[in-house]
C-alpha cells in the first residue's frame, strides 16, 4: 500500500508540475481525485487491507489526497496569476500620452491676492465690511479731513457724478460708514473697487482695487500698526522680504507713513501701502472722542501688490482678461 501511495504521489507531482493551462489542471484533478480517480480507487482498495493496518492506511491515503489537492490548488493559482499578468501586459498603454483636459479655470490674479490677504487679516481678527462705490463728497473727502479747498484733493483725480456724488477714490469712506454705526472697539478690513480719473497706460488705469483696514480701541499704537504691517508683509511676500516705513502725509491720518518692501532677489524699494494713526478730526466726525480712543488705518492697492508679486509690468493686462494671461496664475 505504502508503495502504491508513493507511486501515485510521484506521478501526481510530475503530472501537476507539467500542467501549462487551467484545463490541464482540471484533467489532473479528475485523474487523481475524480470519482474514478486514482486516489478514490485507493479508498476502494482499503477494504482489502488487513483490519489492523486500516486506520494507518486511511490516514496515509487522506494525506495523499490533501497533498494532491494542495499542489493542484497551488499550481492553479500560479497559472491564474500568470494568465492575468499576461492579460494586463497585453492591455498596457502609453502612459506618456496626454490626458484629457478636464479644464479647471482660474481665479483672477487680483482676487487671488485679495483672498490671501483677507485670510491673513482674518487670522488677525479683522472682519470684512463693504461700502458703496458711488459716494457722497462728504464720505469720500470731508469726513476724512479733506475739505474742499484742501490741496490734498488734488492728490486724487476724481470722477464726479450729478448731485455732488463721486466715484470713491479710495476705500477709506468705509471707515466712516462703519464707525458711524459701531462703537469701539472696531477692527475691520474693507476691500473694494476705487476710481481715479487718470490716463490709462502701462502703470495706471481708471480704476483699481484696495484693501482698507483699521482698528480703533483705547490704546492702539503706531508700534502695533507697524507690527500688523510687518506680519502681513511677511505672511504674504515671504519671511525674507525686507520692509521699511517712512513718514508721509494723508489728511485722514497723523502720524502717517508709507511702507516700502524689497522682495528677496530684487533691488530697490517698492511702495506698497499707506497708513497712519487715524486723525482726531476723523474720529470726531463719526462721533468718537479722540481723548478716549485712538486707532490706526491702512490702505493698500491690490493691483500694485499683485503686479509686484508676479512681475506683471503692465496694469492693463489685469483688465484685458486674455485667457493666455489668466491661465498663468
Amino acid at each position: 500500500m505504502q508503495d502504491k501511495i508513493n507511486q501515485i504521489q510521484q506521478t501526481a507531482e510530475h503530472a501537476v508540475d507539467a500542467c501549462t493551462a487551467l484545463e490541464e489542471i482540471e484533467q489532473q484533478r479528475v485523474r487523481f481525485l475524480g470519482k474514478k480517480g486514482e486516489v478514490t480507487l485507493l479508498f476502494q482498495h482499503l477494504k482489502n487491507v488487513p483490519v489492523e493496518e486500516k486506520p494507518q492506511a486511511g490516514v496515509l491515503i487522506n494525506t495523499l489526497k490533501d497533498h494532491i489537492h494542495n499542489i493542484l490548488q497551488l499550481k492553479k493559482e500560479r497559472l491564474e496569476t500568470a494568465q492575468l499578468e499576461k492579460q494586463l501586459l497585453s492591455e498596457s498603454i502609453d502612459v506618456t500620452l496626454p490626458g484629457q483636459n478636464s479644464g479647471f479655470g482660474k481665479i483672477h490674479p487680483l482676487n487671488r491676492t485679495l483672498h490671501e490677504l483677507v485670510d491673513i487679516f482674518h487670522s488677525l481678527g479683522f472682519s470684512i465690511a463693504h461700502g458703496p462705490e458711488i459716494e457722497t463728497e462728504y464720505y469720500n473727502f470731508d469726513a476724512l479731513n479733506i475739505p474742499s479747498y484742501h490741496p490734498a484733493r488734488d492728490m486724487q483725480d476724481t470722477f464726479f457724478l450729478e448731485n455732488g456724488m463721486v466715484l470713491r477714490t479710495h476705500t477709506s469712506p468705509v471707515q466712516i460708514r462703519v464707525m458711524e454705526n459701531k462703537k469701539p472697539p472696531v477692527r475691520i478690513i474693507a476691500p473694494g473697487r476705487v476710481y481715479r480719473n487718470e490716463a490709462i497706460n502701462y502703470k495706471s488705469y481708471c480704476l483699481f482695487h484696495q484693501i482698507e483696514g483699521f482698528y480703533v480701541d483705547s490704546a492702539v499704537s503706531f508700534a502695533e500698526l507697524k507690527g500688523v504691517l510687518a506680519f502681513v508683509i511677511r505672511e504674504f511676500f515671504g519671511k525674507e522680504t525686507q520692509f521699511r516705513i517712512r513718514p508721509s502725509y494723508f489728511p485722514f491720518t497723523e502720524p502717517s507713513l508709507e511702507c516700502d518692501i524689497m522682495v528677496k532677489g530684487k533691488s530697490g524699494w517698492m511702495e506698497i501701502l499707506g497708513a497712519g494713526m487715524i486723525h482726531p478730526q476723523v474720529l470726531k466726525s463719526v462721533g468718537y472722542d479722540p481723548q478716549q480712543v485712538q486707532g490706526y488705518a491702512f490702505g493698500m492697492g491690490i493691483e500694485r501688490i499683485t503686479m509686484l508679486r508676479y512681475g506683471i509690468d503692465d496694469i492693463r493686462l489685469l483688465y484685458d482678461n486674455d485667457l493666455r494671461f489668466l491661465a498663468q496664475f
Partner: peptide
C-alpha cells in the same frame, strides 16, 4: 472650468 475676469465698470 470657468476663468474669472475683472473688467472696467465704466
Amino acid at each position: 472650468g470657468f476663468f474669472e475676469t475683472v473688467t472696467c465698470s465704466l
